[in-house]
Nucleic acid binder design. Structure first.
Lengths: 155, 155
DNA sequence: GTGGTCGTAACACTAATCGTTACGACTCAC
DNA sequence: GTGAGTCGTAACGATTAGTGTTACGACCAC
């Protein structure tokens, strides 16, 4: 590629949230510079990945109502909402389906006191922690992200 | 502490934290009932997994100073610290090495404004969020976990 | 029509975890 | 000492998720 300029829950701290935020920031900046749509190839060039990866991720963001896509010639992607109104939690929910921590793969021994109570206990604890995480993600908007991106000193 | 800059970081919200907490709660309760050491086979029976999985996890907890093991006949595992002094953050740090969110696998286009600034920007944002997560994990002790486990109504 | 772009299926590759077997190392009871 | 029981750990396969890539149909501006 050219060098472009519950029972089971898996979260997988992968780069999906990072790439999705990258794509949104790129589209937002591109639109502010006067363009109407961005192509998956342009975004993939900036993120140094494959356009199909971008199309897959942006497809999930479209299902969440964050972006729109147009097909055909001169087509591409545009924001469906302002950067100010999109939080990292919106993006997280769009691209990360599972819970943060998973329970046992196989049901623990229900005859054992610990095996019986561990799942409800951990679910309660994890639930509270996940709520805190979501609140933190909701505090950051994509406008904040773009601002931080542009504030990085170019040395 | 989280090390962000690396090329690939996988956390994988797997069940490692859950199983580790299960094992610690089991050992703690077993000791309170008058026994001195618990075997990996007993714990594996309660967690419905393989004793080797338990030994591997407890080995990481031992390296973190949370449990001790004895070999030989009549050997097994014992707590190295009281349940009250072990937090979920201690367990998390012992069994989950990577950061919560990963950066791009490949370096983004440094000629692009977004590609250049996105990593430092996201690292700052992720760092703050991860600190909050760690603070939440630190608020829960293994004694709290055991208490919650035993408080689950047996119907 | 033609060309450019999305939409998506298909596949290979990588990485992490888990389950399992196997076996050596160790230590207690005798 | 000997034997039995347990840990310590290597090795391997299976499973899962994500990523990168190719391919090709669908769609639309011109």
């Amino acid at each position: 590629m050219a060098c472009y300029g519950r029972e089971e829950g898996f979260v997988s701290a992968n780069s999906r949230l990072t790439i999705a935020a990258h794509a949104l920031a790129w589209i937002g900046l591109y639109q502010r510079r006067g363009h109407d749509v961005a192509t998956s190839e342009q975004i993939a060039g900036s993120a140094n990945t494959n356009p199909v990866v971008i199309r897959r991720l942006l497809g999930e963001l479209r299902r969440a109502g964050l972006v729109e896509s147009r097909r055909g010639a001169g087509a591409g992607w545009a924001l469906a909402r302002e950067l100010e109104s999109i939080t990292l939690l919106d993006v997280y929910d769009a691209v990360e389906p599972g819970p943060l921590f998973a329970m046992h793969r196989a049901t623990p021994d229900q005859e054992c006191v610990v095996g019986y109570g561990i799942r409800p206990a951990m679910q309660g604890i994890y639930g509270g922690i996940e709520e805190t995480l979501r609140a933190e993600l909701a505090r950051v908007t994509m406008q904040d992200v773009l601002q931080d991106v542009l504030a990085v000193p170019r040395q």
